[in-house]
Amino acid sequence: MALLNVPHLWHSLPLAELEVGKQFYWHLGNFNLHGQVFLVSWFVIGLLLIAAVLGGRSAQMVPAGFQNFMEYALEFIRDLAKNQIGEKDYRPWVPFVGTLFLFIFVSNWLGALVPWKLVRLPAGELAAPTSDINTTIALALLTSLAYFYAGFSKKGLGYFGNYVQPVAFMLPFKIIEDFTKPLSLSFRLFGNILADELVVGVLVLLVPLFIPLPVMALGLFTSAIQALIFATLAAAYIGEAMEDHGEGHEEH
């Protein structure tokens, strides 16, 4: 009998409810959209744009106030891109890599820090956009396109030479790599963020007070690391595509 009561207990506590795989559908013509993902991603984009405008609006030689913070962020991103792509070619890729990092980072942290549960949707629930597979696949495919574009724009058709470096024997593996790269990128991010939210959700379900806090802190850490990993790997792939022949290739 005690077991029977458990579901009722769950439904009586709105904060302790787990919904996995339920989407808040929008319909656009024949297409389905995940509304909750777009709502939160617009929030994230809005936040990023506001921060960018505040930080870059009256950019001065001697930074003041919020400009300091945004400059710190920009220098971090530049260092990241420079380390992976190299001093010579990194500049055009700073916006792409940096936006990857900022978007994923802000998404992850907002998903963990903002009490989205307070907003009720007809179906599904608001969460980090990166906990939806569509978002991560979109970002990963863009990364693939970016490194192909980088390779072709740098070397033209000579980019295919990369596939037989350092030995022709590597060709099948290199081709497989082109598929595994976006796959691993998207699933790593998606899995980490979703798992983090689920673990926190399950723990809150079991013990609503205090106990989930360390896991939440760990979740914040993981979220930051995932954003860093995604941006770093994207930059590394781009750098690898533009790498000159005869140099050592990184293994991932």
Binding site: L33, N134, A138
Partner: peptide, 9 residues
């Protein structure tokens, strides 16, 4: 569930 969210995103 992969749908039009992906390209739009």
């Amino acid at each position: 569930d992969i749908d039009a969210t992906m390209p739009l995103m």
